[in-house]
Design a protein around this nucleic acid. Structure first.
Length: 436
DNA sequence: TCTGGGGTCCTAGGACCC
DNA sequence: TCTGGGGTCCTAGGACCC
């Protein structure tokens, strides 16, 4: 089994496409007030910038880095090149994300790759080095780290051992010796919560994990995790490479720079998200029966509400109507930082229109009436607005929301209001004053 | 003025059916 | 007036992964 991982993928694509960024710290991720880092280049990692860190913290650790919001079409294109290369090696390729995949070398195409007729250490090592240079060729300069072993688990652990731009082949029979000194969290599925539970029963390494019986692990962690950890601690992993996976859910969510309090704005945003979900469902020829909304409150507590239809839908108006209905049952008076809509229970077919109704039109989504009070004046692309209360700055824009702080001479930190980007109130503008 | 987005899988309780 | 067990579906929340 081979595992390939592209190094600092998003940041590396940016450095490839923009020579001025080469050798410099690059951070790709959310650039808004509540953004997090998706990928940091190795130059940025020297300053302690890490994936999943808030962009705010990344900026304070490495203020001179280039902060980029990401160009997903470029990442997709580079990923496709790599996946195509991998599929030319073996029919069994399982992408885990844009930048990672497993390849089953046991069923490799040996007419095209005669080096793989035997899977000796020497021939696998030679092949993997060749593959790594081919990846760099086809992507125009990206590097990959590769691991090879007798299972998915070992291949993945191996690819991590010599990053970036490295190769590790684990000889058969040495797997358990390799794992024993490692932290239990090398096992996929052992995150912070499970690691803490293990620590409380005196387990920090795989060697210590091996000492627990299967019954103890099941008692401590539940059925699925218990059996899974017992096996993986012994490098017992026979998961096959699955090249085609069916989607189980489609969802859209957004975190807003400023907490939302206006219910009709929330309904408007859910309606818009429902439209995005419906579009993606249709594009994939899918429909689903269960509509779920996700709401993260100001204090980060997260709730979900769902509702299941008798037959699947891919219609924006239906998804939107259910989503708004689910929101109606929630108390959002403390403010909402995230809203999301998802559809699950997917079928690869769409309900015929049994009742002879015409299919609802995407263009005719029933929008929600927005509040009339405190309408500001604003022009697309402008930073400064006049508002009825005085002057204000557009200080947050994205995901369909414009957030404005209204300032007056007597209250320099005036009230904040959020509007849907397409609220007609925002386009009926008057003359803006000159920006500061 | 900490804490993304798009997913998957698991658990647990309750409804309901046989 | 008391009381099975198994199976499936639905809902909500949480852990985890990249």
């Amino acid at each position: 089994m081979l595992h390939l991982d592209l190094d600092a993928f998003f940041a590396a694509v940016e450095q490839r496409d923009k020579p001025s960024l080469r050798g410099k710290p690059v951070v790709v991720g959310g650039v808004g007030g509540r953004g997090v880092v998706a990928t940091a280049s190795y130059e940025a990692r020297q300053y302690g910038v890490r994936s999943a860190m808030s962009t705010r913290e990344a900026r304070s650790r490495c203020p001179h880095a280039a902060f980029l919001s990401g160009r997903f079409h470029a990442y997709r294109a580079a990923s496709d090149q790599v996946m195509r290369l991998l599929r030319s090696v073996s029919p069994l390729v399982e992408p885990l994300s844009l930048d990672e995949a497993f390849v089953d070398l046991a069923v490799a195409d040996t007419t095209e790759h005669p080096g793989l007729t035997d899977l000796s250490l020497a021939s696998v090592t030679a092949f993997a080095e060749e593959l790594r240079s081919r990846v760099t060729e086809v992507t125009g300069g990206l590097t990959a780290s590769v691991g090879v072993g007798t299972s998915k688990f070992i291949a993945k652990v191996a690819s991590d051992l010599d990053k970036p731009d490295g190769l590790v082949v684990v000889p058969p029979g040495t797997e358990r010796d390799l794992l024993r000194p490692m932290k239990a969290s090398v096992i996929p599925g052992v995150g912070p919560a499970t690691a803490e539970r293990l620590r409380r029963v005196g387990v920090q390494t795989v060697a210590e994990l091996e000492q627990l019986s299967e019954d103890e692990l099941v008692r401590e962690l539940g059925k699925a995790s218990g059996h899974w950890l017992y096996a993986l601690a012994r490098a017992d992993d026979d998961r096959p490479v699955v090249s085609e996976r069916e989607a189980k859910s489609v969802s859209v969510e957004g975190t807003y720079d400023h907490d939302l309090t206006d219910r009709s704005l929330m309904e408007h945003l859910l309606t818009r998200q429902a439209g995005d979900v419906a579009r993606r469902l249709r594009k994939s020829g899918l429909s689903g029966r269960t509509i779920t909304i996700k709401v993260r409150m100001h204090d980060f507590t997260t709730v979900s509400r769902s509702s299941t239809l008798g037959s699947p839908t891919d219609t924006a108006a239906t998804i939107a109507r259910l989503a708004r209905g689910l929101l109606a049952d929630l108390d959002t008076s403390g403010g909402v930082r995230l809203l999301g809509v998802g559809v699950s229970g997917l079928a690869d077919w769409v309900q015929e229109d049994l009742f002879g109704e015409t299919t609802e039109d995407e263009e005719e989504l029933p929008d929600v009436e927005l509040p009339q009070s405190s309408r500001p004046t604003w022009a697309p692309g402008m930073d400064v607005v006049h508002a009825e209360l005085g002057q204000g700055w557009v200080w947050g824009s994205g995901r369909g929301v414009v957030t404005i702080r209204f300032e007056t001479a007597t209250s320099p930190a005036g009230p904040v209001r959020s509007y849907a980007e397409d609220d007609p109130a925002l386009s009926a503008w008057t003359t803006p004053s000159a920006p500061e």
